[in-house]
């Protein structure tokens, strides 16, 4: 028992470190990718090619004056940025980065918690992050954040549905909510080949859930100045971004597990590279995809975003479920 606790704590620390590194360098990657897409270099002066930029940013934000809006509801105002970071950290526990490793004759499973309702847990926990943005927007007692908070409430609730519905197709095929089982199911063929519609719907919904462009309406800087985080400064502001990038990482990680074959190599002759490396590579590929989208597309309008969700994505995912269901029944020799 003591052994198990010790191993779990070590795993927690390692995964947390990986996530934070990913987040820190995610911000650098964003700026580098943006730079090169836009025909410029991006950060270049902190360290070679700007590799120390995340540290400099962190330090700067840490020393900034922490301004509290005078009319704010203090409790909620302080709570919101903290809430922004919690959901992605909770999801971290179920990410199946690999199956297991053997150290000193002992087999240690790699996921921190191999729970049977992992997918449900993921949906439940990520839907909590809407509170951060809503409370952040409403507690500052300011108009632009309020509009941002209003937008995000509607946006989250709608896209949460799409996210859930797109995953159901996968769950139906695999017959399990367990992420490790889902990955093992993809040993021979990745699920995005069998479930392309669900994969696309998942990515769209994930980007919308993360408030990333082209769906970054709650913080649309050209309309709402800063949206929900207009009234925040210093580390509180940084926490929102920490949460956003951490969310991007875990969303990409979950998408990797659900659709891109988790820790399996794309072809068998490449399987000498360890699983966790593959997992991180695929996660980064999806992460990069999100950056790429952001720097290419304009922003949708609020009503168009909602229209897209309710008029197109939800019906499409429902049809996908119907189709998948038929295939599952026919394969089982059904009706």
């Amino acid at each position: 028992m003591v052994m198990w606790i010790a191993v779990t704590v070590v795993k927690l620390l390692i995964y947390f470190a990986i996530l934070m590194l990913f987040v820190a360098y995610g911000t650098l990657a964003e700026r580098k990718v943006a730079g090169h897409i836009q025909d410029r270099l991006g950060p270049y002066h902190c360290g070679p090619h700007g590799v120390l930029q995340p540290l400099a940013d962190g330090l700067k934000l840490f020393f900034k004056e922490d301004i509290v809006a005078s009319e704010a509801d203090k409790f909620l105002y302080f709570l919101a940025p903290a809430l922004a970071v919690v959901p992605p950290l909770l999801v971290l526990g179920i990410i199946p980065i690999g199956e297991s490793i053997t150290i000193a004759g002992k087999t240690i499973p790699l996921p921190i918690a191999n729970i049977n309702v992992a997918v449900l847990y993921f949906l439940g926990v990520t839907s909590l992050s809407v509170y951060a943005i809503m409370l952040g927007g409403w507690s500052g007692n300011s108009k632009y954040p309020l509009l941002g908070g209003l937008r995000s409430a509607a946006q989250f609730i709608s896209y949460e549905l799409v996210l859930g519905l797109s995953i159901i197709g996968v769950v139906m095929l695999v017959g399990s909510f367990n992420l490790v089982d889902i990955v093992k199911y993809q040993k021979d063929m990745w699920l995005f080949i069998k479930q392309p519609v669900a994969f696309v719907a998942y990515m769209v919904a994930a980007i919308a859930e993360l408030n990333r462009a082209p769906f970054d309406l709650p913080e649309a800087e050209s309309e709402l100045v800063g949206g929900y985080h207009t009234e925040y400064s210093s580390m509180k502001f940084a926490l929102f971004f920490l949460g956003e990038y951490a969310n991007m990482v875990v969303s990409s990680a979950i998408a990797t597990a659900l659709f891109l074959g988790g820790w399996y190599a794309p072809c068998s002759f490449l399987s000498f590279i360890p699983g966790p490396v593959w997992f991180l590579l695929k996660t980064f590929a999806l992460f990069f995809f999100m950056l790429w989208i952001r720097w290419t597309y304009p922003r949708l309008r609020y009503d168009q975003l909602m229209g897209m969700c309710w008029k197109y994505l939800i019906p499409i995912t429902l049809f996908n479920i119907l189709g998948t269901g038929l295939v599952v029944i026919l394969k089982a020799g059904g009706v």
């Binding site: 025909d39 462009a213 050209s222 720097w295």
Partner: peptide, 16 residues
């Protein structure tokens, strides 16, 4: 105009 509508890359292309 493109920047306002969210297409940030056009901004830098035009400035070039």
């Amino acid at each position: 105009h493109a920047l306002d509508i969210g297409a940030m890359t056009v901004f830098l292309y035009c400035f070039r």
